[in-house]
């Protein structure tokens, strides 16, 4: 049995790496990938709790998270492609029309 602490620590580390990715990178696609990393870290936490409490609720929830993530990626990528067509760039700091 893998200790729960280790699994949660792993999930936290991957989540922090995702956060760093969102904050540090300028490329919208890489930011999106880091968001997926964060979602997966949360999935890992769900599955490890499900395995330790011997309950399947965590796994069912992960199933729904995956579905939602797939839909989100599809729409997000469509938005990025459209933005690229208008602005010729995927770097988020060059898209500042709404800047106050």
């Amino acid at each position: 049995m893998i200790p729960l602490n280790w699994l949660i620590a792993l999930s936290a580390i991957v989540f922090c790496i995702g956060v760093v990715g969102v904050l540090v990178r300028r490329n919208a696609l890489v930011i999106f990938m880091s968001v997926e990393l964060m979602l997966n870290a949360a999935n890992l936490a769900f599955v490890s709790f499900a395995s330790h409490m011997k309950s399947l609720d965590g796994q069912v929830f992960v199933f729904f998270v995956m579905t939602v993530a797939a839909a989100e990626v599809a729409i997000g990528l469509a938005i990025i492609v459209h933005l690229f067509r208008l602005r010729e760039t995927v770097f988020v700091d060059e898209i500042h029309l709404l800047k106050g």
Binding site: N43, Q59, F63, M66
Partner: peptide, 16 residues
């Protein structure tokens, strides 16, 4: 797979 969530492991590969 190590956490006995085989279905999720395979679905992770198929979907993600």
């Amino acid at each position: 797979l190590l956490l006995h969530a085989e279905f999720l492991g395979m679905v992770q590969i198929v979907v993600y």
